[in-house]
Design a protein around this nucleic acid. Structure first.
Lengths: 147, 147
DNA sequence: ACAAGATGTAATGTCAATAGTTACATCTAT
DNA sequence: ATAGATGTAACTATTGACATTACATCTTGT
């Protein structure tokens, strides 16, 4: 598994919701139109974000809203909401513990430290990025283009 | 693409080569036996490591040897030898630039910074891990088990 | 009450990437 | 020359990401 498009789509949705909130009702088909992917994909992603407490989605009537301060929402929270196994599946190790060779029996243990370090550094970096910072970047981009 | 098993297999091979070097001839079928994967997979991985200047493989007669100081070989070098596109394919962004929505037009740019940060942090962490440090960990493990 | 429009989710299909396998050409020491 | 090894292309299998269809469920307006 990689850090998949789901994550970028999720950020896209959150950004969209923030920009449009209060102006019009944000439905999954609207977000599908903006992101270029299927409404079901959107609904699944929104569902994950909802479970993580980042947004609310009104059943029946429809409409998504942020339910947390954008400066409190980190990229890691978003990623984690979408990928339940977190970063554990990002790195693969070949299975070979059952073999006689002492290298085979210990390789997993040897790789544990480096791989955990990598995951921790990804986590830390993701935690340092807030939705607010991305909103700011977006706003700067848009206003500079209109100037 | 993820950080695939190729990487762990490569470390396995390098560790094996270091431990066995001088004791007996290290062939691809021997490494296949130790890692539990196909000799062709091994040969492809060794071929990549060879191109990166980390090992030599004797044609015809067979036998792999390290050709760099283990303390100078980093995990990043190993990873990079195997994955020509480096970390660029680790993170996916959904394609949507052609759409009307301003969010769609700018999302890629907004994500550029955070995603580059992530890649850089992975790279830095990988560069901080040397083959020597993994050899040391391995030796410690083996001697402590025999004690 | 009920129709319209929205979400929630299961089931299925498609495609690309990873990994495994076979096959064979090539090389080197004996 | 032959035995044993590497180098690589070609093919298959499997897995995971993503798309799509279908349908149940919910809420509001009438």
């Amino acid at each position: 598994m990689q850090i998949s498009m789901k994550c970028s789509i999720a950020v896209h949705c959150l950004l969209f919701i923030h920009e449009a909130e209060g102006k019009f009702k944000i439905t999954s088909s609207l977000l599908a139109e903006s992101t270029g992917c299927n409404p079901v994909i959107i609904r699944n992603i929104l569902s994950s974000l909802k479970k993580a407490g980042l947004i609310t989605v009104a059943r029946g009537t429809g409409g998504a809203k942020l339910c947390a301060d954008p400066s409190k929402i980190t990229l890691y929270q978003i990623y984690n909401a979408l990928e339940p196994d977190g970063l554990s599946t990002l790195i693969g190790i070949h299975p070979c513990e059952e073999r006689k060779c002492p290298v085979a029996q210990n390789i997993r243990h040897v790789l544990e430290n480096p791989y955990n370090k990598i995951k921790d550094s990804i986590k830390q970096t993701m935690e340092s990025v807030t939705l607010q910072s991305m909103i700011d970047d977006f706003d700067t981009l848009v206003t500079s283009k209109n100037a």
